[in-house]
Amino acid sequence: MPNELGEFLRARRTDAGLAPPHHDDANRRRSTGLRREEVAAASGISVDYYTRLEQGREAHPSDSVLNALARVLCLPPDACEHLYRLRGPHPLTARGQRDDAGLLRERMTAIVTAVRPNPAYVLDRLSNMVAANAEGLDLYSGFADREPQDRNTLRYLMTDSRAQQIFVEWEEIARGAVAHLRAANADDLQDPELHTFVTELQARSPLFAEWWSGHLVERRRTSITHIRTGKGIVARRHEVFYLPEDGLRMTLWITGTSSESL
């Protein structure tokens, strides 16, 4: 049986250390790539485990291992996706790996900036804000003052009391966000990052623990949400656009359709 995963890793390892000759030294010797020991050490795995991968004796490495190997071997987006596909029957586990984090954030920031003044933000599979315009940040009181890595809409809904003051249909929205978390991660519910996030929210929110244990599954869809503002309650419709290749979704809030006094 062909060892596609091992052969791919071995080829990329051999290429990883290669550099084109200088223009003034066409005969300059090339390096011979990275050794197994170097790849293993840089990836945080044992040499024995990495050797088993190359030899086809281990065919189901975890996402964290593949992430590390892709980084060490400097795989471009398509090669990274191919690596995940060689691992096994999980074609969607490579979502979010097509671009590095910086480039992905740059792309998404350009999109949400283009739709101003409508509030908009882009979330990943754990509801972390990858990008947001100023109006989108304003929907979540306090988000503008947080570091980008601390902006998570599900954590905000479940643990920040301000969420219940802002969103009139808070329970419906929060319950839907929990259901979406499971739907967005259906391909790998044992993912360590997801497990850590779920464990945190279970400890901090009994309601989250109840809803998560209920195995609610539902993707976010368009709906009308009532938001409390300084001028009263405003009804706003939002649309959700999915970017499956990147494992992201963008929420675009449409101009308020009605309002009433508090």
Score class of each variant (00 low, 15 high):
residue 67 N to Y: 03
residue 163 A to F: 05
residue 171 E to D: 13
residue 78 D to W: 03
residue 155 R to G: 11
residue 116 R to T: 15
residue 116 R to H: 12
residue 134 A to P: 03
residue 172 E to Q: 10
residue 136 G to N: 01
residue 132 A to N: 00
residue 103 L to I: 11
residue 109 T to V: 06
residue 148 P to Y: 10
residue 109 T to I: 03
residue 164 Q to P: 09
residue 110 A to E: 14
residue 130 V to K: 03
residue 162 R to M: 05
residue 166 I to Y: 00
residue 100 D to W: 12
residue 117 P to K: 14
residue 118 N to I: 11
residue 73 L to W: 06
residue 126 L to S: 00
residue 127 S to F: 15
residue 87 R to V: 12
residue 144 A to F: 00
residue 139 L to V: 12
residue 163 A to E: 06
residue 128 N to G: 05
residue 63 D to I: 14
residue 131 A to K: 05
residue 91 P to L: 01
residue 153 T to G: 06
residue 57 R to P: 10
residue 118 N to Q: 10
residue 73 L to M: 11
residue 97 Q to E: 05
residue 163 A to T: 10
residue 152 N to F: 05
residue 58 E to Y: 10
residue 121 Y to H: 15
residue 172 E to P: 02
residue 79 A to H: 08
residue 107 R to V: 05
residue 85 R to C: 06
residue 166 I to W: 00
residue 107 R to K: 11
residue 92 L to H: 14
residue 139 L to S: 12
residue 127 S to I: 08
residue 133 N to P: 01
residue 120 A to S: 02
residue 159 T to C: 03
residue 65 V to K: 02
residue 87 R to Q: 07
residue 105 R to N: 11
residue 84 Y to H: 11
residue 108 M to W: 09
residue 127 S to P: 00
residue 81 E to T: 07
residue 99 D to N: 12
residue 73 L to N: 09
residue 134 A to R: 10
residue 136 G to H: 03
residue 89 P to R: 05
residue 105 R to Q: 13
residue 114 A to Y: 08
residue 61 P to G: 06
residue 131 A to F: 04
residue 128 N to E: 01
residue 89 P to V: 03
residue 118 N to E: 05
residue 144 A to C: 03
residue 89 P to G: 06
residue 58 E to R: 15
residue 101 A to H: 14
residue 84 Y to V: 05
residue 84 Y to D: 11
residue 139 L to G: 07
residue 149 Q to D: 14
residue 65 V to C: 02
residue 128 N to F: 12
residue 143 F to N: 00
residue 130 V to A: 07
residue 161 S to Q: 12
residue 167 F to G: 03
residue 166 I to G: 02
residue 60 H to T: 10
residue 100 D to Y: 13
residue 104 L to S: 04
residue 97 Q to F: 03
residue 158 M to T: 10
residue 134 A to F: 09
residue 139 L to H: 15
residue 149 Q to I: 14
residue 149 Q to E: 15
residue 79 A to S: 13
residue 127 S to A: 15
residue 81 E to S: 05
residue 103 L to N: 15
residue 147 E to R: 13
residue 135 E to N: 06
residue 85 R to S: 01
residue 164 Q to S: 12
residue 102 G to C: 09
residue 92 L to E: 15
residue 112 V to E: 08
residue 116 R to G: 13
residue 149 Q to S: 14
residue 125 R to H: 03
residue 66 L to S: 06
residue 119 P to G: 07
residue 145 D to S: 09
residue 69 L to S: 06
residue 91 P to H: 04
residue 95 R to F: 00
residue 113 T to L: 14
residue 118 N to K: 09
residue 62 S to C: 04
residue 145 D to R: 11
residue 95 R to A: 13
residue 62 S to I: 05
residue 126 L to E: 00
residue 71 R to F: 07
residue 123 L to Q: 11
residue 74 C to K: 13
residue 83 L to C: 01
residue 160 D to W: 01
residue 147 E to D: 15
